[in-house]
Amino acid sequence: MKLSEVKEILNAEVVAGEEFLDREVKSAFGSDLMSDVLAFVKDQALLLTGLVNGQVIRTAEMMDIKAIVFVRGKKPTEDIAELAKEYQMVVMTTDYTLYPSCGKLYCAGLVPNEERVD
């Protein structure tokens, strides 16, 4: 799914990486726990989280995650957005909570390859 579609489906506002909305994501992972992101995320995933701090961006960078959606209307501060821009990430924010955000994307066809942990 293209990030521009993600933006539309979640009625999201782009706060960084507007120029990369053509990018494709193949799966998604929703979590507020960054250690679980480090444990379970696979390739080219979109991260949905309600946690807003610099470690979210750094965690995403470690996992080669190129797109993050902050849910529940959370807006990253300027320095967090700057860090994301440095890593050429797309960062969006949506007013939907985590469960409906994931549900809407899933229904629209963004289905992960692996739905269970090993």
Binding site: L33, M34, S35, D36, A39, L51, N53, Q55
Partner: peptide, 9 residues
């Protein structure tokens, strides 16, 4: 609060 400290390290 930073998203760590859940015993996964």
């Amino acid at each position: 609060e930073l998203g760590f400290g859940a015993g996964m390290g």
